[in-house]
Structure formats: structure tokens, C-alpha cells
């Protein structure tokens, strides 16, 4: 079999969900920024407001799926303990990383960051999605709300980019197979 279930889940988590989240975050930031520069009589229309609201909901949904898959599907096999006396650690990524001082940081820094930070991104994205759906055009036309929402989405983008990069590093050295 070319890909195992575990490697497929890793690809769904990182490439599909992570990739969609990053693209949608970028699109939402650009859309909101475009509206900001088009205030006055050419401000947001109902259609634009609806699109931005849908985009923020998509971001929140994809991030929720990403953290749930990451925490409850991918993390358990990653942290599984190898059998006593076992020498082949290829099926036990955490133990494989910790076995060498050169790669131990990939668990101690990269994976431990990935355990918690994405959950912050989820909360921020959900907050913005709620405001997008509830306020629609007001979110885009009210400068204070729009700036705060954009700031939270920008933080989200930074967090997701960082944990995605850490995921690439971990998966490059100790992939789930």
C-alpha cells in the first residue's frame, strides 16, 4: 500500500486542512483590507459582507477540524511508547526524535508548540466568524471592529504558519508511516 492510514491523516491535517486555512486566512485579510481602502460611497455591499462572513466561518470550521484531527487522530500514534527493548523506532516518532540530541528539539520545541498554539488560533477564528455572521456589513464598515477582526486573523495566520512549518520539520525527520 502506497500510503498508510496514518500518513493519509497527516496529509489531510497538514496539507488539506492547514493549506485551506492558510489560503482562507490570507483571502479574508485581503478582502477586509480591500474594503477598508474603499470606504465612503463605495463601501461594502451585502454580497461582499456575506462573502467575508462565509470565509471567516470556513476558516473557523477548517481550524476546528485541523486541531481535532491533530490532537485526537495524529498525536496519539506520534506519542505512542515503543515496546521495551525495541530498536526500530520508525513507528514511534516522538521516541525517534528524542533518541538523538540533534533531533530532540523537534519534539521539545516544535511538537510541544503544536500541541497548544493551534487551539488559540481556533478560538480567535471562531470569535471573528461569530462577529462576521452576526454583524455582516457592520463588521466591514465599522473601522474599530474591522481592525480588531483583522488583527485577530493576522495573529491566526502567524500562528497557523508557524505550527505548519514546525509540522513540516517534524514530518520530514520522523513521519507517521
Amino acid at each position: 500500500m502506497l500510503f498508510t492510514d496514518r500518513s493519509l491523516w497527516t496529509m489531510i491535517h497538514g496539507i488539506v486542512l492547514g493549506g485551506i486555512a492558510l489560503m482562507a486566512l490570507f483571502a479574508a485579510l485581503v478582502s477586509m483590507s480591500t474594503v477598508r481602502t474603499a470606504e465612503g460611497p463605495y463601501g461594502a455591499t451585502e454580497g461582499q459582507s456575506r462573502s467575508v462572513a462565509r470565509l471567516t466561518v470556513l476558516i473557523a470550521l477548517v481550524l476546528w477540524l485541523g486541531v481535532l484531527v491533530g490532537t485526537y487522530v495524529i498525536f496519539p500514534p506520534y506519542r505512542a511508547t515503543p515496546p521495551e527493548g525495541g530498536t526500530d523506532l520508525s513507528q514511534y516518532p516522538r521516541s525517534l526524535l528524542l533518541a538523538s540530541p540533534d533531533t530532540a528539539w523537534l519534539h521539545a520545541f516544535a511538537m510541544e508548540s503544536k500541541e497548544h498554539m493551534p487551539w488559540i488560533a481556533v478560538m480567535l477564528a471562531t470569535a471573528v466568524a461569530f462577529v462576521g455572521v452576526r454583524y455582516r456589513s457592520t463588521l466591514l464598515m465599522n473601522a474599530q471592529l474591522r481592525n480588531m477582526a483583522m488583527t485577530l486573523l493576522a495573529i491566526c495566520f502567524a500562528l497557523v504558519s508557524f505550527v505548519a512549518l514546525m509540522g513540516v520539520f517534524v514530518n520530514k525527520v520522523a513521519p507517521l508511516q
Partner: peptide
């Protein structure tokens, strides 16, 4: 655009729910 600019009509919506959502996320973080 063909659609009407609807922003001004909704400018007076109370911002409390939005700020509660943002601050709630800050507390969660």
C-alpha cells in the same frame, strides 16, 4: 456595484456582542 451599500444603515448596531466575542477569545487564549 449593483447592490446597495448597506454599511451605513447598520453602523448603529451595538458592538457589545462583538467585543464580548473578542475578549472571550483573549481570555481563552
Amino acid at each position: 456595484p449593483r447592490e446597495a451599500n448597506v454599511g451605513a444603515a447598520r453602523q448603529d448596531v451595538a458592538n457589545g456582542a462583538a467585543l464580548a466575542s473578542f475578549l472571550g477569545a483573549g481570555i481563552g487564549a
